[in-house]
């Protein structure tokens, strides 16, 4: 009986999430001051500024992080910023490739001149410290084994202070590492792109000024997509997110009503004097 009930609950979930994907409802997005701050900061960066994008994205967080990385990448490219893509998780390499492809196909970016892919480095926080403290010693070859000294873009980078913005897209702690080792030590502006779950924690780093902007979850990504005028994966998801949230909220409330009603009924049934 319980198994049947579970399957019905799941089936309704699938239908409810699916409907707005077929026919969007066009619900409003709502404000997002942290995302707005991120947009404003990037928008004001001069053309040809060099930025680092740490794409620590994995299939487990792709749904939230890839749309925001893509939107910010597109914003950088539309403004003519030079982008260094790197990652501190093994799966990130694949997303770096995807972003490079977007840069080359959509914006005509030239590899080595406008965009550069640094290889994955193991060690997490330690690897980021190595990058922040001495980027030239930390890397001597790019993702494809080419010597970095041969690439024109690399000539303009001698230290982390040459970077105008370091942003990360992570389901882990990369935004905290940036605040610890890039902002605290080198005062290079940092931006966090995090999954919605990390937002309540990451907000204090934004409030303290350790992060110049904070983009959280699909909502942040959708807001950014609409700001750059290119609605994409996140905007398309938002209506489905709305209905999905409403359904789960309904289940929570209904579950509690059933729970309290049955509890009261049990109390009424219990004979007087019993415990």
């Amino acid at each position: 009986m319980q198994l049947k009930q579970t399957r019905v609950i799941w089936l309704v979930l699938v239908v409810i999430v699916l409907l707005p994907l077929i026919k969007p409802l066009g619900l409003p997005l709502g404000p997002s001051p942290e995302t707005e701050a991120a947009y404003q900061f990037i928008d004001k960066l001069p053309s040809r500024s060099i930025t680092i994008m740490d794409l620590s994205i994995a299939p487990s967080s792709e749904g939230e992080l890839w749309p925001m990385a893509l939107a910010i990448g597109r914003h950088h490219m539309a403004k003519g910023h030079r982008v260094i893509v790197t990652t501190f998780i093994p799966d990130g390499v694949m997303y770096a490739e995807k972003l490079k492809e977007v840069a080359e196909k959509e914006f005509g970016y030239k590899y080595g001149v406008d965009i550069l892919v640094l290889p994955y480095r193991a060690g997490g926080e330690t690897a980021l410290v190595a990058l922040a403290d001495n980027i030239r010693q930390a890397y001597d070859r790019d993702q494809y084994g080419r010597s970095l000294s041969e690439l024109p873009m690399w000539q303009d980078i001698t230290k982390i202070e040459d970077i105008a913005l370091v942003s990360c897209y992570t389901a882990g702690d990369d935004h905290l590492w940036l605040a610890r080792h890039v902002w605290a030590k080198h005062k290079v502006p940092c931006l966090g792109g995090v999954i919605a779950l990390s937002a309540p924690e990451a907000i204090v780093y934004f409030q303290n000024g350790q992060l110049v902007g904070l983009i959280s979850g699909v909502k942040g990504a959708a807001y950014y997509e609409s700001k750059i005028g290119k609605p994409g994966l996140a905007v398309q998801s938002m209506d489905a997110q709305s209905l999905g949230h409403a359904y789960l909220l309904f289940l929570m409330i209904a579950g509690n009503i059933v729970f309290w009603t049955s509890k009261r009924r049990n109390l009424e049934k219990r004979p007087a004097g019993g415990d």
Partner: peptide, 26 residues
């Protein structure tokens, strides 16, 4: 407050949600 449904019900909901995240939660 996270989703459009909140804004559609009342613009106050996302603002209040934002206040909760930015003040007591922070």
């Amino acid at each position: 407050g996270q989703v459009g449904l909140g804004s559609a019900i009342s613009p106050f909901i996302p603002k209040f949600a934002g206040w909760i995240v930015a003040n007591p939660n922070a």
